[in-house]
Amino acid sequence: MTVLPKDIPGDSLKVTVGTANGKPGDTVTVPVTFADVAKMKNVGTCNFYLGYDASLLEVVSVDAGPIVKNAAVNFSSSASNGTISFLFLDNTITDELITADGVFANIKFKLKSVTAKTTTPVTFKDGGAFGDGTMSKIASVTKTNGSVTIDP
């Protein structure tokens, strides 16, 4: 049996954390987006972790974005102690894959008090994996961190 590389060099799934701005007490939304989904033969499963400074940001909610089908079954998240974990699994293993680019999740943060303008990162942590529509590992994932700026 011969195994051929399935990824064209330079191609990767792009996962990007967005940015937001606000004043202390505001609730802002930071999107997590996927790009080049079709090039990577869709997404059938993924789990990953984001870190944030809990002294500056309070997670209000984490909701599935419009590219997630049947989110009540296929999407899960949790947030505590400065870490947000995400889990997606197409429970049907074929019919509810992520097949389009767009917003995977929206994180709502309540901004805490600061004395001066502060930009705090929302960054990928170690761990996690992504699988394509056949549940094979997506070897190349380009992750881009985001941030939230609090301006009193």
Rank of each mutant, 00 (worst) to 15 (best):
T118L: 04
F130G: 00
T142D: 02
K41A: 10
I150E: 14
N91W: 03
P31Y: 07
L56K: 05
S147C: 05
V32H: 09
S140K: 14
P66S: 12
K110W: 00
F34E: 03
A64Y: 14
N145L: 05
N42D: 14
G51F: 08
Y49Q: 00
D11E: 09
A38P: 10
T92E: 00
I138T: 05
I93W: 14
P152L: 14
P66C: 13
S76F: 09
A72N: 15
T27I: 11
S140F: 05
T123F: 12
K143D: 00
A100R: 07
F109T: 02
V148N: 06
P31V: 08
K125P: 01
P24T: 11
D151W: 15
D26C: 13
L57F: 08
A54V: 12
T123C: 06
F75D: 01
E58H: 08
G128Y: 02
T115F: 07
V15D: 14
T123L: 06
S80I: 15
D36G: 13
I8Q: 10
V28T: 11
T27L: 10
A105L: 04
V28I: 13
D63K: 10
N106H: 08
T144E: 06
V30K: 08
Y49C: 05
V122L: 04
V43Q: 08
A79Q: 14
D126H: 15
D11R: 11
V43I: 09
I84T: 05
K110R: 06
L4M: 11
T142I: 07
V32T: 08
K137T: 02
A20E: 09
L87S: 13
V68S: 10
V15L: 07
K110L: 02
F130Q: 01
S147T: 06
G10E: 13
L89F: 02
G82V: 15
F86S: 03
G18S: 10
L89R: 02
L111V: 07
F86A: 00
P5K: 05
F86V: 04
G131I: 00
V68T: 10
G65T: 10
K117E: 05
N21V: 13
I107P: 01
D11K: 10
V114P: 08
P5D: 08
M135L: 03
T33G: 13
V103F: 06
C46G: 05
D126L: 15
I150T: 14
G65S: 10
T115L: 05
I107A: 02
D101T: 09
K137M: 00
G65R: 12
K14T: 11
V73C: 12
S76N: 10
G131A: 02
F88V: 01
K143A: 00
D36T: 08
T19E: 14
T45S: 03
K6G: 06
D53P: 13
V68A: 09
F130I: 04
A139M: 04
I107K: 00
S12A: 11
I84L: 14
V17W: 06
E58W: 08
T45R: 00
T83I: 15
P152T: 15
I138Q: 03
P24N: 13
G102A: 03
A71C: 11
A35S: 10
P5L: 07
A54F: 13
G102H: 01
Y52L: 11
D63H: 13
P121W: 03
T94S: 04
S80V: 14
G51Y: 11
A105D: 00
A71Q: 09
P121A: 06
G133E: 04
T119M: 12
P66G: 14
S12I: 12
N42P: 04
V122C: 06
L111F: 05
V59K: 08
V43A: 07
P9V: 10
K41E: 08
E96V: 04
I84Y: 02
M135E: 02
A139F: 14
D126W: 15
V73L: 07
V43C: 10
P5Y: 11
P5R: 02
V37N: 12
F75M: 07
N47D: 03
A105N: 02
T142R: 08
T115N: 03
T99F: 08
K125S: 02
K39W: 14
G18W: 12
T45G: 02
L57Q: 13
I67N: 09
A139H: 15
A38V: 13
